[in-house]
């Protein structure tokens, strides 16, 4: 493309420079009369939306069982590697976390763990008041994280969809599941 070099074009450019700077100055100055967006925390509490990314919790499914199946996806999604857990299972083969630890002194509240979670177990809540005088207290274990409710997705139960037999839900009893195949049947 040919570079424009005409005198009028140059003048236009210079005018544009000056004009844009003046607009900027005026734009900033006009904020003298707008309200502050920030609030006087802690005297005033800010309004936090439900999707605010604050303190992380582990939720339970509608049956009151732990939703977390210790699949490790949150841990692998975590950019600061601040989640660690170990899988274990009960007699019926239901997976859950033996321990589930979040080091909140490393957490950046990015919410990638929540996005990665296939069971809606890990959720971020509108609570950011987590300061501690002792850094060690920022390490939360499963008992600190677990809440007694389903959080944002009240009706979802992973094991209803997984096809895995666990206590209280045998093969074929899940959503959209056929009864177990009878291997001995020759019927078409």
């Amino acid at each position: 493309m040919k570079k424009k070099t005409g005198l009028f074009y140059q003048m236009y450019i210079w005018f544009d420079y000056i004009y844009s700077n003046l607009v900027t100055l005026w734009g900033v100055l006009s904020h003298t009369f707008t309200r502050a967006d920030t609030v006087q925390y802690p005297d005033q509490q800010p309004h936090l939306h439900p999707r605010f990314r604050g303190r992380i919790v582990l939720t339970k499914d509608p049956d009151g069982e732990e939703r977390c199946v210790a699949c490790n996806l949150c841990a692998s999604a975590c950019p600061t590697d601040c989640i660690s857990l170990q899988k274990t299972e009960d007699e019926s083969g239901r997976w859950y976390a033996d321990y589930f630890r979040i080091n909140f002194s490393r957490c950046v509240y990015c919410g990638l763990c929540e996005e990665a979670c296939p069971t809606y177990a890990i959720q971020l809540t509108p609570d950011f008041e987590m300061a501690e005088y002792v850094r060690q207290n920022m390490v939360y274990e499963k008992e600190h994280l677990l809440i007694n409710g389903p959080g944002k997705h009240p009706d979802y139960s992973f094991y209803a969809h997984s096809g895995k037999a666990v206590s209280g839900r045998q093969k074929g009893e899940g959503v959209n599941e056929a009864q177990p195949v009878d291997v001995r049947s020759l019927m078409p």
């Binding site: 490790n72 841990a75 692998s76 975590c78 600061t80 590697d81 601040c82 989640i83 660690s84 857990l85 321990y99 630890r101 979040i102 080091n103 002194s105 490393r106 850094r135 060690q136 920022m138 390490v139 274990e141």
Partner: peptide, 15 residues
Amino acid sequence: RFSGRTSLYADEKVS
């Protein structure tokens, strides 16, 4: 992709 290295032993020592 090794995960959890800032929390694997955080129960013993946070640093």
